[in-house]
Every structure is written in C-alpha cells, then in structure tokens.
Design a protein around this nucleic acid. Structure first.
Length: 345
RNA sequence: GGCGGCGUGGCCGAGUGGUUUAGGCAGGGGCCUGCAAAGCCCCGUACGGCGGUUCGAUUCCGCCCGCCGCCU
C-alpha cells in the first residue's frame, strides 16, 4: 500500500481511446498532456508518473517557471515533487522577465537529458505557445530592442493610445510591414499593436522578412510527440475554477502575493500578469476590494480556459479524452493496465 | 393616503419625437512564432404595462404596476 495513492478503481477506463490504439510513437518520444486550466492535468500526470517507471514530468506552464509563485500557479507540492521528477518549474526569480525563447532552450536541454537517462518525458501544461515551441521545434527570430523601441516610440509620439492620430500611425506601421513583408502583413491583424511591432522589429532588425522564420502557427506538421487533450464539460470546469480559487485563498494565496510584492525586485512585467497575482496585486497596491479582485480573477480564469480550449482545439494532432485520462496515458507511456490497477487497489 | 423621483438588452449606464437605435462589463465565437495566465478581432434593435396625442413615440400626456425618497 502506497500512502499517496488514493483508492481508485477507475484508473483504467475499460475502452481505450484511439490514441492508445494508434501506431505507437518512437519508443522514447515524449507524450504531452494538454488542456485548459483546472482541468486536472497535473493530477493525472502525477498519477501516471507514480505508476509507470521511468517517467519524468515536464511542466509547460508560463507562470510556474517563477520561483515563489507556488500557490497561485497550483504547483505540485513538495511531497509530490519529491516522488516524481518535475522539470521546468522554478526556473527564474519573479523579478525577472521570461519568454518562450528561454522556455524552449530549457525544454530542449531537459528533454535531451531525460532521453539520455533512458527515461521518457511526459509534458504537462496549458501554455499553448510554449508547447508548440518544443513540439514543432519552432525557431524564433531574435530580438532587436533598438528597433522595437524606435517603433514603439514613433507610435507613442503620434498621440494618445487610441486617438485618431495614433490609429493612423498604427496603420502606417501596417502599411510599412505590407511593403517589407506582405506575407507577415497578411497574418498580423492591423489593430494588434504588439504583433505588428514585433513583425516589423524582426524584419527591419534582421533584414529578413519576419515570415521567413516559419510558416506560422496554423500549420500542424507531423510530430513524434503524442498529444493528449484533457477535456471537461464547460459548466463543470467553471465550477472547478471557482472552487479552486477559493482553495488557493485558503492556502494563503494573498499572503504569497504580499510577500512577493514586498521583495526588492517585486514582480517583473511578465510575472505580474499571472492570473490571480495580477488581481490580488491590484488589491494590495491599488486598494481594489478583495472581493472584487477575487471575482475578477475567477472571471478572467474562465476566459483563459476558453482561450486555451480554443487554442488546443485547432491542433488536429491532439487526441481528446474526457474523464480520467491517467490510465490511458499510462498505457501510452508503456505502463500496463494491470500494474496501474494494482497500485490503485 | 399625499407629494416627488425613477423603471433602458444578463448587469451597469448614456440618450433621443423619425438616417446606421451610445458605451462599459459579463457571455459567445475567432486569431496568434520573443510580454502568451498576455495581446488582438468579431457578435446584442433594449427601452415596465395599457391607452392617448402625433404622419410617427423608448422619448410628450393619462392611468396602472413596481421600486426609492419625503410627508401625513
């Protein structure tokens, strides 16, 4: 009898979804478990990792990379992480900025190490772009801060954000991109300042069209990574989200945010946009009523879940399952139903 | 009981006697190669009820209903 395993007779669904019957991927190729927030991915992954030998978990979560942001990101606790290798969490200090680029580099390193050990990686997480960066081995163009600053500066100088002159300046930028890189211009929404500036930054900075760095994200080439999507009834998921937030508050989420905010470096631009942190920060720093902050956080989390579902839904390579996926994933990873069932007894 | 005010789409909230019937939030859909738990785009003919005035009423008048305030 193993202490951490709750009694469960449903570890293995009687019918294995198609994924389990699909041609087996390369022996050691990673498997990914994806889905919206609060869907139970991490729990399922931990379950799998504790039943199938040689599995190492790799988090694919843009916010769990920050040290000290534990409660709000619902990181597995110390005990769980002691039992199962859990990578790509606690990579940087919350006062530092972090981007896909770094994530990808770390992921490559970790995945190589896992393979070298003869182990198998189970990627778990809900940050779509981060996952794509490893699944599709995207190559990100570099960054050209001076160019970006100049572009941003010209926009700022044109007037207040949203003003007519500002809008026309934005249109000018899009026209400029259309000349330098028509393909990219076609992909970037003229109103999306951030994407627009980025495409221009790369094109001008590198001297190569932004679009030449990749086909875009709406191409889904074959990959050796088997991706399993965990789906949930939307109403049920909303309930889980609200319930989970209450639980996080009870665990001392507010205190965690206070502590982080009080640190010398505070929270970086990227770290402070984490859901829950952002809203709780508005309570701490701007006096927004706690109740309001919490309500907003829950609402925004629902919105996030929708965006995540929408993102993953588009990827035709993902095999969807609902309910208890741990058993199926275990099989996929080479575990045996009997073994898992025995542990679950 | 009297007097006054209010009653707008799920919520908040402008407004007008008659071209496209504000806006915000929530909700739904979609997008995306360096902030991605972020960012961006699209989607809503609603004016409490019944009469009246009017060529035409959500907007004016009357009554009714409901809410709020004050008075007795």
């Amino acid at each position: 009898m193993r202490a951490p395993e709750p009694a469960s007779g449903t570890l293995i669904p009687p019918d294995l979804p198609e994924a389990a019957q699909a041609p087996p991927p390369a022996a050691l190729a990673p498997v990914a478990l994806v889905g919206a927030t609060a869907t139970g991915k991490s729990q399922a992954a931990l379950k799998v990792a504790s039943t199938v030998p040689g599995i190492e978990l790799v988090s694919v979560d843009s916010m769990a990379v920050y040290r000290g942001m534990d409660i709000g990101t619902a990181k597995p606790d110390r005990a769980a992480r002691a039992r199962v290798p859990y990578h790509l969490v606690d990579l940087v200090d919350p006062s530092e900025e972090f981007t896909v680029q770094q994530f990808q580099a770390e992921a490559r390193r970790v995945l190589a190490a896992i393979a070298a050990r003869g182990h198998r990686a189970l990627l778990v997480g809900g940050t779509g772009l981060y996952l794509r960066s490893v699944v599709d081995d995207l190559s990100f163009p570099g960054t050209y801060p001076e160019v970006a600053a100049a572009l941003a500066g010209s926009l700022e100088a044109s007037g207040a954000e949203g003003s007519p002159s500002w809008r026309s300046a934005l249109e000018d930028l899009h026209r400029r991109l259309a000349v330098l890189d028509p393909v990219a211009a076609g992909r970037v929404d003229p109103a999306n300042r951030r994407r627009l500036v980025r495409a221009l930054e790369v094109t001008i900075g590198s001297g190569r069209p932004f679009s030449s760095f990749g086909p875009g994200l709406n191409r889904y080439p074959p990959t050796e990574v088997t991706q399993v999507g965990l789906r949930h009834d939307p109403t049920d998921l909303d309930r889980r989200i609200a319930g989970r937030f209450d639980r996080l508050m009870e665990l001392g989420f507010l205190e965690e945010v206070r502590r982080l905010a009080a640190r010398p470096g505070g929270l970086s631009r990227t770290a402070r946009q984490a859901l829950g942190y952002r809203e709780l920060l508005s309570h701490i720093e701007e006096g927004v009523p706690l109740r309001t902050a919490v309500d907003i956080a829950v609402q925004r989390t629902r919105a996030l879940a929708r965006r995540q579902s929408s993102w993953f839904r588009r990827d035709p390579r993902i095999v969807w399952m609902d309910g208890d996926v741990a058993g199926s994933v275990a099989v996929l990873l080479g575990g045996f139903p009997q073994a898992a069932a025995t542990v679950g007894e």
